[in-house]
Amino acid sequence: MSFGSARNALNQYSQNAVETAIESASPHRLIQMLMEGALGKIAAAKGFMERGEIRAKGEQVGSAISILEGLKTSLDHEKGGDIARNLEDLYVYMERRLIEANRENDPALLDEVSDLLREVKEAWDAIANHPAAQHTPAA
């Protein structure tokens, strides 16, 4: 088996594993997975930024912004009230900062967004054992 074939098989396996995890995840876990994905994309963007790989950096930043958009659309403003509004404002702020980081090639801005998102994720993770979190959509 050539390297290309092996890599293709590994990619297919990874994609299937992710799809299986998504299909079996609770709504709460799906939000955790989105946050983990965004943090991974931001970390990758920082690495590409540091190596001067502009196109790859932009793709990763764009993916992180798309994930933040997904997090915004998952908010339930009716049930979440002020928390949902505050999270939406924070996600919008993070998107703006990612755009600035990409435009200015500023890794400190990527770090700022990662730190903010990590704080939100830690709070989200802390409620993972709450019974309601396993069956209800995001705040």
Rank of each mutant, 00 (worst) to 15 (best):
A38L: 03
R51N: 14
L30V: 03
A38G: 02
R51S: 13
A25W: 08
H28M: 03
A38K: 00
L30R: 03
L39P: 05
G47N: 12
Q32Y: 06
H28R: 06
A38M: 04
R51E: 15
P27A: 14
M33W: 03
Q32E: 15
I42E: 05
G37W: 10
Q32N: 13
F48E: 11
R29Y: 07
L30D: 02
I54K: 12
A38N: 02
L30P: 07
L39T: 12
I42Y: 08
A38F: 02
H28I: 01
G47M: 07
R51M: 12
L30K: 04
A43D: 14
R29N: 02
G40S: 12
G47S: 12
A43H: 11
K41A: 15
A43K: 14
P27V: 13
I54S: 05
M35D: 01
P27F: 14
E50I: 07
I54V: 14
I54Q: 10
P27H: 12
M35W: 01
K46D: 13
F48T: 06
K41V: 00
G40K: 05
I54C: 02
L34H: 03
H28D: 00
P27Q: 13
A25G: 11
G37F: 10
M49I: 01
M33Q: 05
A45R: 03
I42T: 08
E36R: 10
P27D: 10
Q32A: 12
G47P: 01
E50H: 05
A25H: 08
G40H: 05
I42R: 04
G52H: 06
F48S: 13
L39V: 11
K46M: 11
Q32S: 14
K41P: 02
Q32R: 06
E36A: 12
A43G: 13
E53M: 12
A44Y: 06
Q32G: 08
G40F: 07
E53F: 11
G47F: 00
E36N: 15
S26I: 05
A44P: 07
G47V: 04
R51I: 03
I54W: 09
R51Y: 06
M35V: 03
A43I: 04
A25M: 09
S26N: 07
A45M: 03
M35A: 00
R51H: 11
Q32T: 13
G40R: 10
G52Y: 10
G40Q: 10
L39C: 05
F48D: 13
A45E: 06
A38S: 10
I31Q: 05
G52D: 01
